[in-house]
Design a protein around this nucleic acid. Sequence first.
DNA 1: AGGTAACCGAGACGGTACGTCTAGTCTTCTG
DNA 2: CAGAAGACTAGACGTACCGTCTCGGTTACCT
Lengths: 217, 217, 217, 217
Amino acid sequence: MSRAAEDAEGAAAGGRPGPATPAGRGRPRSAAADSAIVEAVLRLIEEGASIGELSMEGIARAAGVGKATVYRRWSGKSALLLDVMRSLDAPSPPPAGLSVRDDLVALLEFLRRRGLAKRSSALMRSLVSHVQAQPELWAEYHDTVVRARRDALLGVLRRGVASGEIRADRDLETLADLFVGPMLARALLHEWKELPEGLPADIVDTVLEGVRPGRER
Amino acid sequence: MSRAAEDAEGAAAGGRPGPATPAGRGRPRSAAADSAIVEAVLRLIEEGASIGELSMEGIARAAGVGKATVYRRWSGKSALLLDVMRSLDAPSPPPAGLSVRDDLVALLEFLRRRGLAKRSSALMRSLVSHVQAQPELWAEYHDTVVRARRDALLGVLRRGVASGEIRADRDLETLADLFVGPMLARALLHEWKELPEGLPADIVDTVLEGVRPGRER
Amino acid sequence: MSRAAEDAEGAAAGGRPGPATPAGRGRPRSAAADSAIVEAVLRLIEEGASIGELSMEGIARAAGVGKATVYRRWSGKSALLLDVMRSLDAPSPPPAGLSVRDDLVALLEFLRRRGLAKRSSALMRSLVSHVQAQPELWAEYHDTVVRARRDALLGVLRRGVASGEIRADRDLETLADLFVGPMLARALLHEWKELPEGLPADIVDTVLEGVRPGRER
Amino acid sequence: MSRAAEDAEGAAAGGRPGPATPAGRGRPRSAAADSAIVEAVLRLIEEGASIGELSMEGIARAAGVGKATVYRRWSGKSALLLDVMRSLDAPSPPPAGLSVRDDLVALLEFLRRRGLAKRSSALMRSLVSHVQAQPELWAEYHDTVVRARRDALLGVLRRGVASGEIRADRDLETLADLFVGPMLARALLHEWKELPEGLPADIVDTVLEGVRPGRER
DNA sequence: AGGTAACCGAGACGGTACGTCTAGTCTTCTG
DNA sequence: CAGAAGACTAGACGTACCGTCTCGGTTACCT
């Protein structure tokens, strides 16, 4: 199934999600165990387990693997979940280079789809919450996943400022939050329903044009 | 400390944070135990305990209270933490009724200050994450705390639409997220630093005027 | 508090089964509560509870009585059970004064019937075991119940020695055990079946005549 | 001390006291933990703990062992105590085959010494009481320990009947109780003092010859 | 081809926390 | 005041996991 492909890709990519394999001699680690573990986590979550209900004991059992085999790869539950989470994040596609407005919509649309593509609708929410509650984990996730996407966004905005499509009198970071924040609010604050299709365009256009009347397109 | 006042207020308010006291005969529950428990939680968190490190066992020990006394009041760790969290949320002040812009700034300013006023800067983040990861807890928190603030925000926006200060061609919920989302993004996504003082005004003005150049105030 | 006084008085009062009643003023203690409690214990045991499963909590609940009401009368579970046990022991009838052999049979027959008269066949066994495991309780029970019966037995034996019916070259205590011991062994060591009717006569005759052949009556 | 030897012997014997070790793969159970637990029980009892004061919690703590390690071996306190008790019972030596009278004295002497050999004089009494109060435990103990000794006794008596040394007109079981009962009465009914040296011979001779005068040896 | 180092599943290890239960005491209200 | 009710602190109950360690056994690399 798809893990094999992901692993291959990840291994090629360098900072791939997944456990670090030591260079040692002896018998090499079993790739089958790697994926059995990650699959077991995903399966358990799909079957309705909350993050708090997941246990290393149960994961190892479900994966048909000894506990030591899990601990050989990850230092604990959090590190494992972090990797599982990263494995679900495809790298954000590069901006297509169309109009700044369209690139912004594309970035937000990517966020929207990522939320949908998850194997379980509540999965991301739970994982994010879990990771966020632990500073080091969150820093790790932020550095490897969040920052890349944010840099892409900042790049587009910078391009917009240069081209005169974006006002130059605001802090770029603040402007970035103006676009990302509403997606986040929808995803986290309210009942979990799938984000509607037109939302990214709606947000981008409203933020660009402003909320005051008189400038509707 | 302030628990006594809070309790009095809470009792009057009906949906107060804190455990429900049954009407039974026998010996009444000790208010001292109530507050000893909540204080113990806050103290442990201030001393650097993460949410995951908190245990009912440890809380009872720190509060000088039997475990049964804790379980008599709350069904488990989550319910206790939910109440602790609610006890930290002051009710949002009513909009002053000035200009729509100023009311929006006031609402966001309240959010900003709430984040600062917490007894520990990381506290809210941890608690929110914990609560958010459990659907029923989050629903409970959403209904009692989040919704009230959102209703206030929607009220202001509705007033703005009526007075012509806010464009009428967007979904009100989406507009609300435009203001709240950026605060959320700042608070959750990035390194925890205290939100700067001018941020609410910045956000409100930029969202109102739009990001395109040419309409700066 | 007043327990010490109560104990002293109670001990002086003859060791009757049942709680000591203090001389206090105020509202007198309810005799209904007294018997409700004892009845509850017996009922619970009949319903199959082992002694270990009995709890003061459960006893008070089953008696429809507050825990304090139980503790006001007895200092703890053991004291209560001791009293319940004593309440089941009728005082041994005085020896009829017939032949020594017939008096011995009568004493053993009394022991046999007492075992049968119990409201539950396993009751005595459980209670005895429980009491025996606690030295002070056992001393108390021994002094009030066992000693009286033993004294009666020793009296009969002494009469027998005087009349020449009992050999004089053995320690009287040892001789007493020769009669009581076999009853005890039957009651405690083997499967609990009711002791057969002819057993006391059997034992007395065999002990009197000896086990060697040639002296059968 | 003697535990190691006992274990080795016990393991060889098959029906040895101690927990059953499953045939499973994984890490084998630690024999050190086995004995640490049993030793801890004995030590606590020697230090004056009553059976009721023993707790699995305390036993594990005293043994320096996790609670699960205890529960992995025994299903609860009673099962553990039963095993401790059995571990104190050496198997009764086979009858030497001398005169029936001397074999009987030897059997009773063994009982007497067993009582003395206990590490604590009150130990056996407490343990027996505890085990006796629970029917299944008692059955188990009876089957494994008591029955063997009784069978040896019955064998001797049967031999005596055949050789004409023992009268044949009494039930063998009743005759057996005539010898064992007096030892039991001494051990259980009266103040715990060590049974005097000549007691077994005294009992056997008196029971054989009878209590009536005229047949003294 | 043989050694050997690191892997594998299984499961025991000492601990800690869970949520429940009971002990014995204390407190409030009702009769 | 006694009594029923039910709170209180304390701590044991038996279970589940934690992260580590130990077994017997397998699998690849490196002489």
